[in-house]
């Protein structure tokens, strides 16, 4: 039981360290910027017919 608690505490601490680091360094938005730029480039290369 004690081992399980220690493991759970370690997992929670690790998740916290990773997510807080991502949060404070704005890593999530920096990653999104790369995906965003890739997607916009993809849309720019698509042939789109303008019609009504």
């Amino acid at each position: 039981m004690k081992k399980l608690c220690v493991k759970a505490a370690l997992v929670i601490a690790s998740v916290f360290v990773v997510t807080f680091t991502a949060y404070i360094t704005n890593a999530d938005m920096k990653l999104v910027e790369k995906i965003y730029d890739w997607l916009i480039k993809y849309h720019d290369t698509k042939h789109v017919e303008e019609k009504l």
């Binding site: 404070i24 360094t25 704005n26 938005m29 920096k30 910027e33 730029d37």
Partner: peptide, 10 residues
């Protein structure tokens, strides 16, 4: 040069 903010505020 970037869309994202450099980092988040403390």
């Amino acid at each position: 040069d970037h869309r994202a903010l450099k980092y988040r505020e403390w």
